[in-house]
Design a protein around this nucleic acid. Sequence first.
DNA 1: CATCAGGGCCCTG
DNA 2: CAGGGCCCTGAT
Length: 322
Amino acid sequence: MQLTKVTTIQLAPTAPFNFDATFHKPDHFTTGDNYWEPGVRRQTFHWLGRTLGLTFSDAGSVDHPAIRVDIHYDSQLEEHYLESLAAEICYRYNLDLDLTGFYAAFGSDAVLGPILSRWRGMRPGHPSSLYEYLIIGIVLQNATVKRSIQMFQALLEHYGTLLSFDGHDLWCFWPPGRLASISEEDLRAIKVGYRARSIKRIDDAFASGQLDELTLRQQDRETQRRELLKLYGVGPATVWYLLMDVFHHWDFFDHISPWEQKIYSKVFFDRDPEDPAPVDDLLAHFDRYGGYKQLAVHYIWEDLWWKRKNEPVPWLEKLIRT
DNA sequence: CATCAGGGCCCTG
DNA sequence: CAGGGCCCTGAT
């Protein structure tokens, strides 16, 4: 689908704001639904029944931030639609997040201090809706990175829409309920394996109205956790990611998967990844970051992945099963 | 060739 | 609460 029309809006994040570290997370695997280069991020966006192509451009500085968003579309967008889209972008990327308390508390911390100044203004966040993130979470399960990418790409190519805009072709997610007429067998045929059942049931849950993202955002964390765990195929690992990335809770840390345990062990305790520190020791260690523990670990984690992007980190390469 | 684990989760006993 | 099984892939 060619998106030939363009309209532009400006967003004003709170200062400080780091464009690249917010709009590109080097630990997220890349597929054909977004394209980043310094100062520019292109991505598809499914919002209120419309498929859009978005180009985010850095139009300011860390201390005087501004984001230009070129919205590529094909049918008329009303003013109130643009307003709700802007609010949604703001939510997903945490453009209103106030980081001053976090920086004040840990700016002079021996470990965190240098990292905070290196990435000053970086926001946590994720481009996906709850539905989209659930699908991604399912294809991450029990698979190597390469296989996850393969499954996700196959899903996009079968059920998504290829959007052409701004000189790029990027895949856009399909809407919840799209899989109603698709059988579990159809999904298995594109090699998602036993995850077909989880994907089907998640799609059903949204189509039937059992789950509504905007309603769930208003609930407290434990309600969110409980509701998400009701979904077939969603367990502790997936719900942990969701509470952080989709629901933006920064003050809890209760799960560490085996591959992350090895990396944290090396980073925080300089332990041999083959003989990692117990999960409970790591969780206890994170307590020092109090109500900011997700933010603290996110900063340290992203710092590591940016480092790897610029130069190989030999011990880390071994732990990434591509 | 065969075997096995991988960025989990469900189900059973 | 422990452990087997699961789709597929590629490493060994």
